[in-house]
């Protein structure tokens, strides 16, 4: 990856929880402005990989994040959300100090959510919630987005809007992302590189010819069907 700045290096990362191997010997790099898709079946350790990078789960191995490139986390859904009547604006700045009104507005503009800043977060659609959490990561100063199955709860239109925004952030702001996904079509269209895992790493490289049905069957461990569709 000549000319591109290395912003995240993961080496020999393993996670064992309650005596069970969740991840084993995972190694990859992430460069500035790059989207890395993580593919794998349920229980493959994809979400745990994101949590290990964030330091939310104990691991062995090495995780190096370049200074100034702190990651921002966008979970699949906030399953543990309390009853707080927080607005989207509240959520964006929650837990932070030293931010300005302009920073919040600028992030909201980038994510196209300015008109929803004073709406209750709980009443927002799945897509708007997702974009609010990305705006939060931007106000935090994140240069790496860790997205856990970001489109699994979104309709087709919201999915498309989400990927367009991600592409814009990548191209204009040089934001990088690690995106857990199940959608091979999306991976081929938007990801620069793919990491296929099922506890162990099966593939790490460009979403080219090597990412074929045989590899997918090997990763998923059973006979899977592939439906070709447009993105």
């Amino acid at each position: 990856m000549e000319g591109k700045k290395l912003i995240l290096r993961v080496r020999n990362l393993s996670v064992v929880l309650d005596g069970k191997k969740i991840l084993e010997d995972i190694s990859f790099d992430l460069y500035e402005g790059e989207i890395l898709a993580v593919l794998g079946p349920n229980g493959a350790g994809k979400s745990t990989l994101l949590k290990a990078i964030l330091g939310m789960t104990p691991y062995t191995g090495e995780v190096y994040i370049a200074p100034g490139y702190r990651p921002g986390y966008i979970p699949q859904a906030l399953v543990d959300m309390g009853k707080l009547p927080a607005t989207a604006r509240d959520v964006i700045v929650m837990g932070f100090r030293g931010y300005s009104r302009e920073e919040v507005l600028e992030a909201a503009r980038k994510l196209n959510i300015e008109s929803h800043l004073d709406d209750l977060f709980v009443n927002l659609s799945g897509g708007l919630k997702q974009r609010t959490l990305i705006a939060k990561a931007l106000v935090y100063g994140s240069r790496i987005l860790l997205l856990d199955e970001p489109t699994s709860n979104l309709d087709i239109q919201s999915q498309r809007r989400f990927y367009d925004i991600l592409k814009q952030l990548k191209e204009k702001e040089k934001i990088s992302a690690i995106m857990v996904s199940h959608d091979l079509g999306v991976v081929s269209s938007y990801a620069d590189r793919v990491l296929c895992l099922n506890v162990k790493m099966f593939y790490h490289g460009a979403p080219g010819k090597e990412l074929n049905i045989d590899l997918i069957r090997k990763v998923y461990g059973h006979d899977v069907g592939v439906i070709i569709h447009d993105h």
Binding site: K51, G72, L84, M94
Partner: peptide
Amino acid sequence: VFSSFSRELARAY
């Protein structure tokens, strides 16, 4: 406030 909103998100930050 943050951990009341979502413990998981608060931990991530």
